[in-house]
Design a protein around this nucleic acid. Structure first.
Lengths: 156, 156
DNA sequence: CACAATAAAATTGTGCGCAATGTAATTGTC
DNA sequence: GACAATTACATTGCGCACAATTTTATTGTG
């Protein structure tokens, strides 16, 4: 039972947490653009590579779970990454339904060149010490609760 | 000169603030979907209506400034809102370049039906008292700094 | 073994976001 | 008062996001 907080119930744009989230997310993506453009990739493609660099070859579904993206987004995105020569898509012999996404040598090599990117981003964000971790936690919790409620609504 | 903070410079997906922002923003948008669908509008369209409910008729450019969206996004979006009968687009007689966006009666009437939306969202977010305002502030500052840096990069 | 149910991906269609380009109206400058 | 520069907006093209549908393979269940 939430108290009727004026800030959460007003219809003023600048009071809406949703808008500040939406604006912040887009601003950050825009900052990534010039940093990733020399590498020939977009921001969602970069996120896919982060997962592959961290975990190695994974099926498409696991990418979707990690990034909270569905096949409708990932299928064409992965085709573009394949066309760019950064990943390979191979059907698993033991389960022909599953498609394994693996880094090519070029995709693996990109990791080193991309190492400077998070540094530049963190620098631009310029968050005070500890604030980074705090914000990370708040947002993770928020996502969790909001996704749970969305799932409830969808179940009807 | 930022200290080499491991959390900001790691390449682990779940350490990236950018990803938690991106995931949170999308989760919130997905929560809006079933709430706005009965009203026949999308989330970005809802944001446009928020501005119009608050300010009355405004030119397209002012909507863009308020929402940080460009004409390439707004022009087709506003055409859809017009097709839905929620807004009117009229050229200003004193400056034929400018297009004024005004609410129709139906668009104005939607305000009452939409009043329950921010309540439902705030409820799902379930942030502790004060956390809402705090997060709003942190995100606004973040957006400010990141957008400023992006503008610097673009200036080259 | 047949065959319904499930699972993994791909495809289709719609609506953003945004860069790049185009168009028409207005303003500044000489 | 011509005319270059600027302003406000529209259009085009591409890459997401995501709902809905389809395709192909696997897994129960009798």
């Amino acid at each position: 039972m939430a108290a009727p907080d004026p800030a959460t119930t007003s219809q003023r744009l600048d009071d809406q947490l949703c808008f500040s989230l939406y604006a912040a997310s887009r601003a950050v993506t825009q900052l990534y653009r010039p940093l990733l453009e020399p590498l020939g990739i977009t921001y969602p493609q970069y996120l896919v590579l982060l997962v592959l660099w961290e975990r190695g070859a994974v099926p498409v579904g696991e990418l979707g779970t990690a990034l909270r993206l569905d096949y409708g987004t990932l299928s064409p995105l992965l085709k573009r990454l394949e066309a760019a020569g950064l990943v390979e898509r191979t059907r698993r012999p033991d389960d022909e339904r599953s498609v394994l996404i693996a880094l090519t040598e070029a995709g693996d090599a990109l990791r080193t060149r991309a190492a400077a990117v998070p540094v530049a981003i963190g620098d631009a964000m310029a968050l005070p010490a500890g604030e980074h971790e705090r914000l990370l936690e708040v947002l993770a919790g928020l996502t969790e609760r909001v996704a749970a409620r969305a799932a409830e609504l969808a179940a009807r």
